[in-house]
């Protein structure tokens, strides 16, 4: 709140994340898995939608949001993911295709944010840490998938594994520069 300079955060990426969670958690009210699962889904949905609402509606934040640099066009990511989900999925049902779409979209949703960081170059600590933990979240899933692959029979899910791996790869160079800046205790700057 106090850092109303939202210059570093990409509204485009926030909107893509809101779409990812909206299309992935369609079965939240029909299938109860666990309290943790339901609570976290509500947290993911409420946090992503409130960030979008806040960045769009809040007068102070809207003015400082860097809209002339955050110009990545959603449809360049949404349409290919939708087409891919219609072609490659495990079952041709609305729920399964929507879920698969959300898996593909999450893998690339960070791109507008990474493009914005390279354009604005002034990466303040909050934004840098935010992007770092967004990437760390999915890379920790890879550790979980490896563990489950070796401990549970028939635990093979190519769609989530490949998408999660691609997503983590997209962060690779950001992780490299972020960890270097952290190690050398210098300001994080990405190459143009």
């Amino acid at each position: 709140r106090k850092n109303t300079n939202k210059r570093g955060v990409s509204l485009k990426t926030q909107e893509l994340y809101a779409l990812v969670f909206a299309t992935r958690y369609l079965d939240m009210f029909t299938d109860f898995i666990s309290l943790y699962n339901t609570v976290m889904k509500l947290i993911f949905l409420s946090s992503s939608f409130s960030i979008v609402w806040y960045m769009r509606r809040h007068k102070l934040v809207r003015r400082s949001y860097d809209k002339d640099h955050d110009t990545f066009r959603h449809q360049f990511l949404v349409l290919p993911c939708l087409i891919l989900a219609l072609l490659i999925h495990e079952q041709f049902t609305f729920k399964e295709v929507m879920w698969t779409f959300s898996i593909y979209l999450e893998a690339v949703a960070i791109l507008p944010q990474l493009v914005l960081l390279q354009r604005t170059r002034n990466i303040d600590n909050l934004t840098g840490q935010y992007v770092f933990f967004l990437g760390a979240y999915r890379s920790l899933y890879i550790l979980n998938w490896i563990y489950r692959y070796f401990t549970e029979p028939h635990y093979v899910h190519w769609i989530t594994w490949i998408s999660g791996f691609v997503q983590t790869l997209l962060y690779a160079d950001f992780f490299y520069y972020y960890l270097n800046s952290w190690k050398n205790n210098v300001k994080l700057t990405l190459p143009a």
Binding site: D27, D31, I33, S34, N37, M40, K41, F44, H89, E90, Q91, T93, K95, E96, W99, T100, I103, Y141, N144, H157, I159, T160
Partner: peptide, 10 residues
């Protein structure tokens, strides 16, 4: 289907 078998994942 995948959405069912990994539904315990967020």
């Amino acid at each position: 289907p995948a959405s069912e078998s990994v539904k315990d994942e967020l």
